[in-house]
């Protein structure tokens, strides 16, 4: 494979580190929410792991911010554009109908344009709303006495808990969607492989037919072709 990788090494390392942390946070959260489900043995173990995995996840979020914002990747890959509104509909039709008919995915990721419009919407909500909410409410929970003014400002301990748990459930829903959608590539494992080796495998798409046209416009007319730096 030649050219810039679809997923640079730093992003791949960040992705799998973050995925491991999110998984650990969700499993420990199950025990915190339902102590009788003793996944990690003693309740104290789950608390310790959740707290420290949370700090690592906060660091991971900080790394992501420092990586994607200064490099311009945030605006290039994550920020939805007006044209994405019709793209979302097209993408949803593909998942609900087109893929059963062997249509080609209307979006083909490139190093300069990695996410389809639905991905953009979900990722930007997760990274600018849910993750910061989860990180900051988690940090407040880590030292309730030190952050008591901030907690009172948010409406008290139970409001803080509500926000943290809501963000946790959002992560659970996101993870379910993310893992399932990762199986919808040319082969069930191709997107997983791409996130490990960095490259998509175009040859795996060869068996698919041309895209199913929607009444508004053909899929083929979409997409930018110019190459931009990979990030």
């Amino acid at each position: 494979m030649t050219g810039a990788p679809l997923h640079p090494l730093a992003i791949r390392i960040w992705h799998w580190t973050n995925a491991s942390l999110v998984l650990l946070l969700m499993l420990t959260a199950v025990q915190l929410r339902a102590p009788e489900v003793a996944i990690f043995g003693k309740f104290g173990n789950a608390v310790w792991l959740h707290k420290h995995a949370g700090f690592c996840a906060a660091g991971s979020f900080a790394f992501w911010l420092l990586y994607v914002v200064p490099s311009g990747a945030f605006w290039r890959h994550y920020m939805p554009r007006a044209s994405d509104i019709t793209g979302m509909w097209r993408q949803a039709i593909y998942y609900a109908w087109g893929m059963f008919r062997g249509a080609r995915n209307p979006f083909s990721p490139t190093p300069s344009r990695k996410f389809d419009p639905l991905q953009k919407l979900v990722y930007i909500l997760m990274m600018t709303l849910v993750t910061p909410l989860s990180v900051f409410t988690g940090i407040f929970f880590s030292d309730i006495l030190f952050f008591r003014r901030c907690i009172e400002g948010l409406g008290g301990l139970r409001a803080l808990d509500l926000l943290h748990v809501a963000a946790g459930y959002a992560f659970l829903l996101y993870t379910l969607v993310h893992i399932y959608m990762a199986t919808t590539g040319p082969s069930v494992l191709s997107y997983f492989k791409a996130m490990i080796v960095g490259h998509d495998q175009p040859s795996e798409r060869a068996h698919l037919r041309a895209p199913v046209a929607l009444p508004s416009e053909p899929f083929a007319s979409r997409g930018r072709t110019e190459e931009e730096p990979s990030d």
């Binding site: 509500l162 748990v165 946790g168 459930y169 829903l173 969607v177 399932y180």
Partner: peptide, 24 residues
């Protein structure tokens, strides 16, 4: 309510994805 909504939506998603996967 947060548990009802969160777990309900998660169950719904798992059901939908299972159906989608079977159809695929």
């Amino acid at each position: 309510w947060i548990d009802f909504v969160g777990l309900g939506l998660a169950s719904l998603l798992i059901g939908l994805f299972s159906l989608h996967a079977i159809l695929r």
